[in-house]
């Protein structure tokens, strides 16, 4: 009666559960689509985010705006703080490791976080190599500024991509630049024939198989969110209209005047991203947005988007 699929398929024999498969990792990100993932630094903030309708929270020690202000080396968060946030909410909890710091990632996996963000917002631990993300059961999200970078991360095992933007600035300009770049790169691949895809793979510095897959699908093989500079409901809706499948909001919420209300407004604007009336309604009476930084006055060395290779 039990017909066992051949062992070459992705599915285990009936009843034998298989964890950490690519489908389970990428599928988790599919469940977050249309949602907002919020940076939080305390269990109390995590509760506010969950109350506002966040689909997940990103647990970190300092929001990017404070990392910018304080300087120094930014590292993985204290395990006690991550435990506190995991215990405070029932929605998924993500946490950041430094680029190439696979031991921080191992620790985050052991703590039971639901997603690891190998993030340029923290100080890189390796200026050549990113972590081998296939080696983990916990899925990874990584930042990208263009298609080649996104595909290199996917080749390393990333199960979700976010456009980088410029975290901690409250300025959406870089988020727009990077998302438009990724979309334009994909659109360009769609116009190439089979002969040209090999050279395209060389130019993108990405594996041919992934380049071919993107050319066929017309999208990344994993979910694409936007991040880095979203501060208002209209910012979130802008990223959604530009083709993001969801948004990360970092400093924009808890560096604003009324975090609870702003968080709820950004959630609503993300769902009704194409309805300016809803966006107008939720944008009323939110108080002060975070002050923000003009990205063209940021020195190159302070641009997080340049981190990652």
């Amino acid at each position: 009666m039990s017909t066992t699929p051949p062992s070459t398929t992705a599915t285990a024999p009936a009843g034998t559960p298989e964890t950490g498969t690519a489908r389970v990792k990428r599928g988790m990100a599919e469940q977050l689509k249309g949602g907002v993932i919020m940076d939080v630094v305390t269990p109390e903030q995590a509760k506010i985010a969950e109350d506002a309708g966040a689909v997940a929270v990103m647990a970190l020690e300092r929001v990017p705006a404070d990392i910018r202000k304080d300087g120094g080396v930014a590292r993985m968060s204290d395990p006690d703080m991550i435990d506190g946030i995991i215990n405070a909410v029932s929605i998924p909890v993500m946490a950041k490791s430094r680029i190439g710091h696979f031991v921080e990632a191992q620790v985050l996996q052991a703590l039971g976080v639901d997603y690891i963000d190998e993030s340029e917002v923290l100080t890189p631990a390796d200026e050549v190599n990113h972590s081998d993300k296939w080696a983990f059961t916990t899925p990874f999200v990584c930042g990208a500024t263009n298609l080649g970078e996104a595909l290199r991360r996917i080749a390393e095992g990333a199960a979700m991509i976010r456009s980088k933007g410029e975290a901690g600035t409250g300025n959406v300009v870089e988020a727009v630049r990077h998302l438009r770049q990724i979309k334009a790169d994909i659109a360009r691949l769609r116009g190439l024939d089979n002969h040209e895809l090999y050279a395209a793979a060389k130019n993108l510095q990405a594996p041919y198989e992934l380049v071919k897959e993107v050319a066929t699908l017309g999208k990344l093989p994993v979910v694409l969110f936007s991040a880095g500079g979203v501060a208002t409901p209209a910012d979130a809706a802008l990223m959604m209209q530009l083709g993001a499948e969801g948004v990360f909001v970092g400093s924009g919420i808890f560096k604003s005047g009324d975090p609870a209300q702003r968080a709820a407004a950004i959630v609503k604007a993300t769902t009704f991203y194409d309805d300016p009336k809803v966006i107008a309604d939720v944008s009323r009476g939110l108080g002060e947005a975070m002050v923000g930084i003009n990205c063209d006055t940021l020195p190159e060395s302070e641009r997080y988007a340049n981190r990652g290779w």
Binding site: A14, T21, V24, D114
Partner: peptide, 21 residues
């Protein structure tokens, strides 16, 4: 949590053609 997320074949009453993934 996510680390316990899994795939397993499932026989569904009323669905022919072997288990679903």
């Amino acid at each position: 949590r996510q680390n316990e997320s899994f795939e397993a074949a499932v026989e569904i009453a009323g669905i022919e053609g072997g288990p679903c993934e």
